[in-house]
């Protein structure tokens, strides 16, 4: 049963991240740009991270593991956003 306000907010954040993942993935499918791939992957992992954070209600015994995975995913998300920002499309010879 979800009752804590912060868990409700976490769950809503995850759903929002999931929506942003869908939009960014559609953008990637349309244009096939590496940048969009990194962005969509970042939002995907952000959503997973949010669901993991909210899931300690359902899996009360898995606290330590969840914290470790949460920190790892946090790092992955920031890494992917950094890669997205640093990725530039190649300027082809003469173009």
């Amino acid at each position: 049963m979800i009752s804590e306000p912060d868990q409700v907010i976490r769950l809503i954040s995850s759903l929002l991240a999931l929506l942003l993942f869908v939009i960014s993935f559609l953008a990637y499918l349309r244009d096939r740009r590496k940048k969009m791939f990194f962005v969509s992957a970042a939002f995907f992992f952000y959503a997973v991270m949010g669901f993991l954070n909210a899931s300690d209600l359902f899996l009360p015994g898995a606290g330590d593991y969840l914290e470790l995975w949460g920190s790892f995913l946090n790092f992955i998300v920031l890494l992917l956003f950094s890669l997205a920002l640093l990725t530039k499309e190649q300027i082809e010879d003469g173009i």
Partner: peptide, 23 residues
């Protein structure tokens, strides 16, 4: 738009035979 973004789009349009490049 940045030259790299324009270049990327131009390249796609050239490959799709919608525009042509003349050196």
């Amino acid at each position: 738009l940045s030259p790299s973004t324009v270049s990327w789009n131009l390249n796609k349009l050239v490959k799709a035979d919608i525009i042509k490049k003349e050196k």
